[in-house]
């Protein structure tokens, strides 16, 4: 008897994770990369996971990588305090935000 809609050999292949890297465009992206590169890799990971074509083990790795990237990106955007400085002729930097505040607002 044939198993109707389940291909055992394919499943074995899946589990062994033989055609792992065929869908990957970028290699590992780290904190060294730019924000754009990190977001691009994150987008790629999400689309790979959504397609569901990678093995479960690989999915786990991708998920882990995605969580790390997402955290790095969030961290990069989390700083909200701006610095506004003026360069003096002697090379010193002085806060300029007050100067602007007082006459601009």
């Amino acid at each position: 008897m044939q198993e109707e809609n389940f291909d055992f050999d394919d499943w074995m292949k899946d589990m062994a994770g033989t055609d792992e890297n065929k869908n990957e465009v970028c290699s590992a992206v780290t904190d060294e990369n730019s924000y754009e590169e990190k977001i691009a890799r994150l987008e790629e990971i999400v689309s790979l996971l959504e397609k569901g074509e990678v093995s479960l083990e690989k999915s786990m790795e991708l998920f882990q990588e995605g969580v790390e990237l997402s955290n790095l990106c969030a961290k990069q955007l989390s700083k909200v305090e701006s610095t506004i400085e003026k360069l003096m002729e002697n090379g010193e930097r002085v806060d300029f935000s007050k100067t602007v505040d007082s006459d601009a607002r």
Binding site: L77, S78, K79, V80, E81, S82, T83, I84, E85, K86, L87, R93, F96, S97, V100, D103, A104
Partner: peptide
């Protein structure tokens, strides 16, 4: 000019670093 620049930066990207060379 500098005020316009600062104003837009504050609106669009809080957390920026700006150095003015007058």
């Amino acid at each position: 000019v500098i005020r316009d620049i600062i104003h837009v930066l504050e609106r669009r990207y809080p957390g920026f670093n700006l150095l003015l060379i007058p």
